[in-house]
Amino acid sequence: MSEIAGDQMLISDNVRRLFDASRALPRARAAAACWPDTDRTVLREFIEMGWLSLLLPEDDGGMGASAIDFVALIESLGDLLLPEPVGPMLATVSLLAACQSPAADRLLKAALGDERIVLAATEADRSLQGDTNHIVFDAHWADVVVFATGETEQFSLRAVAKIDVDGLDALVRNIDGGSLCSVRLDGSMGEELASGARARDIFMRCRNMQRLAAAASLLGLVRKSLQDAIDYVKLRRQFGVAVGSFQALQHRAATLHVACQSARALLYEAARTVGTANEAVACAAAKVKAADTAMAVVKESVQFHGAIGFSDEADVALFFRRAVALTAAYGTAEACHRTCFAG
């Protein structure tokens, strides 16, 4: 399995420094009080460093990173619980570059130049607020939203400014400080970036990369969460011994270890499939497997901590809430299972 190495290690270290790892968890906790957190200071620096071009080809001035590099970077940042939607932004920028149309190029230039933050809507997952609505995650960060409408030849990939969409500021607050927004987007809105089968492929690639990014974030955060839980039961003493010496906990910890290792193997295997026939199935499988694993780990992490695990003061609370939000975002279990059955 690919360990993070070389350039990605460098970027990861720098990004961790930029986002200030030591402040990361207090910031995630504070998001509850000052919501939504849309302080762009750090994100602007991220963009100024040119890191938004991570996935763009080197010939176009990008960094030419592979999907494996992408996954390694996002996974390595998972434990920071960043409010900034770094993974989805990178995936959307990559989508813009793939369109190769004047409209997309203009938007790409604006995005790389820090004027506009562009995010892509997920496919219209079962919205509770209208059958044909699109769901936009982390809309509070976005200036522009990319979305898709229509089928086959009518398929249209479009971009619309946030201010031109009614309701894009009507955020539904998520438990981790993030948001979702359900809006009606149609072919009369914004401008077209690409159309037809090619546009559909580009949009599906973006969707798959969003799923990979969510899976990578989840597995990054559960690695930390599981380690914290194991460290805790080694320290916590009851009946005169560390509670971690009890087989009831050891076997459950081992089960979680197996789940984490195997979900991670699947994540990197899925990253290898990007650009090949099995991409959609692999990314869907990786997302749902990572989500199932993450939820198992954070639930058990709370349980391993006992009462303090149920307090907001314990970091596990932060991991728990992010895991719930990311499980629901960018490919629900239902949508991913459908992809896996169909493929």
Binding site: I230, K234, Q247, L249, Q250, A253, A254, T255, H257
Partner: peptide, 17 residues
Amino acid sequence: IQRDLIARNVLAMPRGR
């Protein structure tokens, strides 16, 4: 037995009672 081995050798949890 495999879970015992993981707990002890991989996760470095203390030897159980």
